[in-house]
Write a protein that binds this DNA or RNA. Sequence first.
DNA 1: CGATATAGTTGATTTTATCAACCAACTCGC
DNA 2: GCGAGTTGGTTGATAAAATCAACTATATCG
Lengths: 141, 141
Amino acid sequence: MNTVKPIANTLFTLMQSYRVTIRKAINANELGLNAMHVRCLHIVATTQRCTANDIVNQTQRDKAQIARLIKELITLNLIVKCASEEDKRRFILSFTTQGDVLFSKLLEAEQQVNALMCKNLTPQQIKDFLSVAAMMSENLK
Amino acid sequence: MNTVKPIANTLFTLMQSYRVTIRKAINANELGLNAMHVRCLHIVATTQRCTANDIVNQTQRDKAQIARLIKELITLNLIVKCASEEDKRRFILSFTTQGDVLFSKLLEAEQQVNALMCKNLTPQQIKDFLSVAAMMSENLK
DNA sequence: CGATATAGTTGATTTTATCAACCAACTCGC
DNA sequence: GCGAGTTGGTTGATAAAATCAACTATATCG
């Protein structure tokens, strides 16, 4: 029986270590944040006038799940929603001051983990790595 | 607000594409197999005299979850368990003929996806990619 | 030999995700 | 302008996945 170890195993191991390290760094357990919460925060941070629908589209997840995640983030006082002037059905999501603080902490943790990951690697190695990964991703579309 | 895009995003996108492509290739939905089933199959295939406890240790998951996954794989007639002679508490897991067939199909699908991922990349690029990934993983330990 | 540890099983519960239905607001063709 | 169809978001119900807890049989060790 062929037991060749595919590329995915290597990447899986890497992503698993990454997740564990980040969660520890932002105290995710105590804050009650899971991976999807974090992904939502990233999207709120990077999408102009972010709506629930933007998150649905970018995560390819169910509307109900996203609505619940948003509600939880609002309850945690990390984001607020205000009515859109252009379309009364939609709400614009933005960070609270507390949310800003937490997201900054998250970014800092991510950058520290990035730096740790890249120890003993040259900028060229990292650049090559990223471009290969991007091409692989593109090859799968 | 700093919105630097970390390495993890690139990898996340790649892993997501990989998962979707593999699942399609082995008809995971029809077979009722999820990612954890597949991981268990991989571990059964690569671990001599594999026991439930081996899977628990390698996946760092709860005993109950692994027991249930194993039970499901047995129900699907993909694996069997027989008593260990050395220790009456444990069972040795192995593939059925049908399980062999499915796992071969899984490996083939993985190799095809690997090949697709690596299109237009040189062996050296892939080798570098893997060694960088492995070093990153090692850096996070 | 008895206390403690371990492998596996199962019940109960929690967490996460999905399906379904709904309402308000918007769009578009007539 | 109007009505049928579409869209954005909410909530109930349900399914799937994961975790916690308790247990029994077996093994280990002082």
